[in-house]
Design a protein around this nucleic acid. Structure first.
Length: 609
RNA sequence: CGGGGCGUAGCGCAGCCUGGUAGCGCACCUGCUUCGGGAGCAGGGAGCCGGAGGUUCAAAUCCUCUCGCCCCGACCA
C-alpha cells in the first residue's frame, strides 16, 4: 500500500461509483466466467467434463475441488431448497464442527470401524489430542442432544446442517461425484420411541421426494444396506444415470427397488427336494475345483445340484474369524450381506494358504463334510431343502455325491447371503427384476439407539425414567446433487440446468454490444427483469456473438434473451429456451413482464403448490 | 494395496526411441478490421520440461530414486 488511505482500508474507494451497477457480479464481464474449448484430460463422465469446461470447478488435488462462483450459486440454491423443505417438517438448521474428538467416537464405538476402513481423515492438535474430520456427525449431534434435550417434552427434535464433509475415498473419480471433500446436508431426528421414529422417518422420506422434485431430479428410493452407519433399516435416493456407480434392481411394477448390495429375489425351489436320500459316495476328482469343472466331470450333476463352500475371513476390530459359506452352485455370495450377517467390519475370501490351514485341503475342495470345529458355518437360503447334493469334503482331489444335510453334515443356519440378479423374479410380484445404474444422492437411516445407547444420550420420559433417544439420520449430497443434475440434464452443447438450481435464471445478451441500439435495448430488458426479481445475468462482454452463445449454452442458463438484428429491424427481443430451443419474440417494453411470469412459474420446481 | 499409463506455458498436446539448450492449437495482452453460433491480420507475454541424484563436453530426451496425477481391479454412507 502506498498510502494509508489506499486499498482495503479505504471504504470510500469501495463505495459504488455513481451510475455503476448495483450488483456487478451479475455482469458477465465481472463474474469471472472462464470456459474451455477442450475437455480436461481426466474427465470420464459428462458432469465432470461439462463442469470443468464451463469453469464451474477447478481441481486442486485428487478428489479436491474449488467450486467457482457460478457453481457456488447452484449449491446455494440447492441448499436453500433443502433448508426450506426441511423447515417445512419442523427440522432446525444448525452448524456443527468438522473437527471431532476421538473421545466422542470411542463412545459410540465407531472409531475403530472408521479407522479400520480408512475412511476417516485423522489429525491431531499440538497437545496430541486426536480428531477425525467429520464424515457425518452422529456423535457430535448426540453429544449436543444429550446435554440440551433432557425431557420428552422437547421431543421430537430434528436437527440438520449443511457443511463440508471429509472421506478418504479409496479412489476419487468422476468429478464431483466421488470426492474426498464435499458438501452434505445431514439431519438427525430424536424421538421417544420407535413409533415416533417411524413418523420422523416417513416425514423425512416425503420431504426428500419433494426436495428432489423441486431440484428437477428424477430420483427414486431403493432399499439399501446401512453399512458403516449402522441401524435397523435404510433407503437410498437414486438418480438414474449411466455414470452411476450403484447397481439397482427394480421391479417394473414400481413395488420394489433395492441396491444390489441389499436386493433379494425369488428363486425356484431346489430341484430334487422330494427325492429319497441316496447313499453318500465320495469320488476322486483330481484337479477339479470349480462348479463348472465339476459339471464337466459329472455331466449328470448341474451346478444347481451342487453346494459350493467358500472360506471367508471376517474381520473384527480385535480378531479375525473363519467362516465356511455354503451356497447353491449356480449362485454368488453377496459380501455386503455376509458382512452384515457376521457383524464383521468386512469380509474377504480366504487366501489359498488360509484355506489349506482351515480345511486341510487345497482351494476348490472345501465342503460342509468334515469341517474342523474352528470354522463357523452359515448357508445361504438357496441351500435349504437341497437333497443328494454334490459338495466338497475338505480333502484335496475328492468330492462327495448325494450328500444330505442332517445326515452327512450338520443342518446349517440359513441366511440370505446370495446376490440377486437381473431377470430373476421380484420378491413382491410376478415381474422380473431389471438392472439400473444410479447415483446415490440421498440416504436415510433408522438408527434406533445405535448411537444414543452407547453414548448415554438419554432423556427423561413421562414416567420419570431415563431412555435413550430413538434416532434417525438423513443425508443429501449437496455437491453430488449438482453433478447428478448435470448427468441428467445436458445435451451436445452443454449443461441444461433445471431452472430452480441454475446459476442464473436468464441471460440477457446483445449480439453486437458496440451497436448502441442493441446495447441499450439489452440493458433495459436486463434492468427490467432485475426489477421484477428475476435472477438474471447480463452478458456485457464485447465478444463475438458465437462465443457468447456457446458460453451461454455450455454454462446452461435456462433462458437467453437475445437482442440483435431482429431487435434492430422489428423492435422485438428473442426469448430462447435452453431446453427446447424454442424462440418467442417479445416487444421490448412487455418482454420483462412475461419472462418474469414464466420464470416465476418454473422456479418452485413443482407442478403445483 | 496390486496392474497399467501420464507429468513439457492457464487448458489440450507434440518433442523423448536416435542427447545439441523448447514447439503447436486454444486461452491471455496490444493494435486494426469484424459482429446472429467458439472471426481475420499483425505484434507480444508466458515454461528452473514434477523433484533429487547420476551418466555426458552437453539431458525435456539416457539411468536411479522420489513425489504427484489418471485408468482398471480390490474397497467404500
Amino acid at each position: 500500500m502506498d498510502s494509508p488511505g489506499a486499498g482495503l482500508y479505504n471504504c470510500a474507494a469501495r463505495a459504488p461509483q455513481p451510475g455503476a451497477h448495483p450488483d456487478p457480479t451479475m455482469l458477465a464481464s465481472k463474474a469471472h466466467i472462464v470456459t474451455y474449448r477442450d475437455d480436461p484430460a481426466d474427465a470420464e463422465v459428462v458432469s465432470h467434463r461439462l463442469m470443468a469446461r464451463a469453469g464451474l470447478i477447478h481441481k486442486t488435488g485428487s478428489g479436491v475441488y474449488v467450486y467457482g462462483p457460478l457453481l457456488w450459486r447452484v449449491l446455494r440454491k440447492v441448499q436453500a431448497i433443502v433448508s426450506e423443505e426441511l423447515s417445512r417438517i419442523g427440522a432446525l438448521e444448525i452448524q456443527m464442527p468438522i473437527l471431532q474428538e476421538r473421545r466422542l467416537w470411542e463412545e459410540s464405538g465407531r472409531w475403530a470401524r472408521y479407522v479400520d476402513s480408512r475412511t476417516l481423515f485423522v489429525t491431531e492438535d499440538r497437545k496430541g489430542t486426536t480428531y477425525g474430520l467429520a464424515p457425518t456427525a452422529e456423535e457430535v449431534v448426540c453429544d449436543y442432544a444429550r446435554t440440551s434435550a433432557r425431557s420428552y417434552r422437547q421431543l421430537p427434535l430434528c436437527l440438520f446442517q449443511q457443511n463440508t464433509k471429509f472421506r478418504d475415498e479409496i479412489r476419487p473419480r468422476f468429478g464431483l461425484l466421488r470426492v474426498k471433500e464435499f458438501v452434505m446436508k445431514d439431519a438427525y431426528s430424536f424421538d421417544v420411541d420407535e413409533a415416533g421414529l417411524d413418523v420422523s422417518y416417513r416425514q423425512m422420506r416425503d420431504a426428500y421426494f419433494r426436495i428432489f422434485r423441486r431440484l428437477g431430479l428424477d430420483a427414486f428410493a431403493v432399499d439399501a444396506d446401512p453399512g458403516d452407519i449402522g441401524g435397523s433399516g435404510s433407503q437410498e435416493f437414486m438418480v438414474a444415470a449411466s455414470a452411476g456407480e450403484d447397481a439397482i434392481l427394480v421391479d417394473p411394477s414400481g413395488l420394489y427397488a433395492a441396491n444390489v448390495e441389499k436386493a433379494t429375489s425369488r428363486f425356484a425351489a431346489p430341484e430334487g427336494r422330494d427325492e429319497a436320500p441316496r447313499p453318500l459316495r465320495v469320488e476322486d476328482t483330481p484337479g477339479v475345483r470349480t462348479c463348472a469343472e465339476l459339471h464337466r466331470f459329472f455331466p449328470g450333476v448341474p451346478p444347481h445340484r451342487m453346494v459350493k463352500t467358500l472360506i471367508y475371513v471376517a474381520r473384527h476390530p480385535d480378531r479375525e474369524d473363519l467362516w465356511a459359506v455354503l451356497i447353491r452352485g449356480d449362485q454368488e455370495v453377496n459380501e455386503v450381506k455376509l458382512a452384515g450377517h457376521t457383524g464383521a467390519l468386512s469380509v474377504r475370501l480366504a487366501t489359498d494358504e488360509e484355506v489349506r490351514a482351515a480345511t486341510g485341503a487345497e482351494t476348490g475342495f472345501a465342503g460342509p463334510i468334515g469341517l474342523p470345529p474352528g470354522v463357523r458355518v452359515v448357508a445361504d437360503v438357496t441351500v435349504e431343502g437341497m437333497r443328494n447334493v454334490l459338495c466338497g469334503v475338505n480333502a484335496t482331489d475328492r468330492h462327495a455325491l448325494d450328500a444330505n444335510p442332517g445326515r452327512d453334515f450338520p443342518e446349517p443356519f440359513f441366511a440370505d447371503l446370495r446376490t440377486a440378479r437381473e431377470g430373476e423374479l421380484s420378491p413382491v410380484s410376478e415381474h422380473r427384476l431389471q438392472l439400473r445404474r444410479g447415483i446415490e444422492v440421498g440416504h436415510i437411516f433408522k438408527l434406533g439407539t445405535r448411537y444414543s445407547a452407547p453414548m448415554n444420550a438419554v432423556f427423561v420420559d413421562a414416567e420419570g425414567q431415563e431412555r435413550p433417544f430413538v434416532m434417525g439420520c438423513y443425508g443429501i449430497g449437496i455437491s453430488r446433487v449438482a453433478a447428478a443434475a448435470v448427468e441428467q440434464n445436458h445435451d451436445g452443447d452443454g449443461i441444461v440446468w433445471p431452472l430452480p438450481i441454475a446459476p442464473f435464471e436468464v441471460l440477457v445478451t446483445a449480439m453486437n454490444p458496440t451497436n448502441e441500439a442493441q446495447a441499450s435495448g439489452a440493458r433495459r430488458v436486463y434492468e427490467a427483469l432485475q426489477a421484477r426479481g428475476v435472477d438474471v445475468m447480463y452478458d456485457d462482454r464485447d465478444l463475438k456473438p458465437g462465443v457468447k452463445l456457446k458460453d451461454a449454452d455450455l454454462i446452461g442458463f435456462p433462458y437467453k434473451v437475445i437482442v440483435g438484428r431482429n431487435f434492430e429491424q422489428t423492435g422485438k427481443v428473442e426469448l430462447k429456451s435452453r431446453r427446447t430451443g424454442e424462440v418467442e419474440l417479445h416487444d421490448l417494453d412487455t418482454a420483462a413482464g412475461s419472462i418474469a411470469a414464466r420464470v416465476a412459474a418454473e422456479r418452485r420446481g413443482l407442478p403445483s403448490s
